[in-house]
């Protein structure tokens, strides 16, 4: 019954989209942009100084969206830690009964600095090549996650991570305010010198914001992971 209703609903939706969509998407081939993207491509080297235009859009043209995006992650991490706090039922016990054994543990610890290094590289080159604060932050968090997965006990400095999380968030807002009260008089205005186009120290505040975003993303992710796994390890300690 459930399947039938599902098929009917989805089928009707698909039929509607196909009948409307066929005519519209039939002539889908273009050799040049006719959107605001072409304007951005033309102005971005001068305005932002970033070689990677996607980064320029994310951090400067639509920097306000990125502030919102970071806030979404913040809200989600808050929610996870509020809700996971009370799980004490040995839900994840099986997962954590085994530690990974010596080789895996030593290996993951040895990998940690290298993964973090790759993460930092990706963050700092965000305005030059694909990457930036979000992927870089995730990679840094992955380093910690690998260690959590393999070792039985890992004490994460929660206090430090909370401080980093808050400072990164406030730092983003502070940069915004510097723009607001600078001669540019606009929230999140890029007022730092642009530097030489295509070099590491260029693009004004874009690397700074990406570093802040990376700290924020990494600390939120470590928070989420540690809260979710702590639910399991707390129950294991109770069982022992």
């Amino acid at each position: 019954m459930r399947k039938l209703i599902g098929i009917l609903l989805i089928g009707g939706f698909a039929f509607y989209l196909i009948t409307v969509g066929m005519g519209l998407f039939s002539a889908e081939s273009r050799s040049e942009l006719d959107s605001v993207g072409s304007e951005i491509l033309a102005t971005s080297p001068d305005l932002s100084g970033a070689a990677n235009t996607v980064t320029a859009v994310v951090v400067q043209y639509r920097g306000f969206d990125t502030l919102g995006e970071v806030t979404v992650l913040f809200a989600s991490a808050l929610g996870v830690s509020m809700l996971a706090m009370a799980i004490r039922d040995g839900l994840l016990q099986d997962l954590f009964d085994d530690d990974g054994g010596f080789v895996l543990q030593a290996g993951s610890l040895a990998l940690l600095p290298f993964i973090v290094l790759v993460g930092i590289y990706i963050v700092l080159h965000g305005h030059l090549s694909p990457g930036g604060g979000f992927p870089g932050g995730v990679i840094i968090a992955t380093a910690v996650f690998v260690v959590i997965l393999t070792s039985k006990t890992l004490s994460i400095p929660r206090g430090l991570i909370n401080v980093l999380e808050t400072l990164a968030g406030l730092g983003f807002l502070a940069i915004g305010f510097v723009g607001l009260y600078s001669p540019a008089q606009s929230f999140l205005a890029n007022i730092l010198p642009k530097g030489e186009f295509g070099s590491l120290l260029s693009a004004g505040f874009i690397p700074v914001i990406y570093a802040i975003v990376a700290i924020k993303v990494a600390s939120e992710l470590i928070n989420i992971i540690s809260k979710l796994t702590a639910a399991g390890s707390a129950s294991r300690e109770a069982a022992e």
Binding site: L33, L41, V57, G68
Partner: peptide, 12 residues
């Protein structure tokens, strides 16, 4: 070059 705006939207 392709349009950078949708790529930024997808990141978000």
């Amino acid at each position: 070059m392709v349009d950078p705006v949708p790529q930024a939207l997808v990141l978000t």
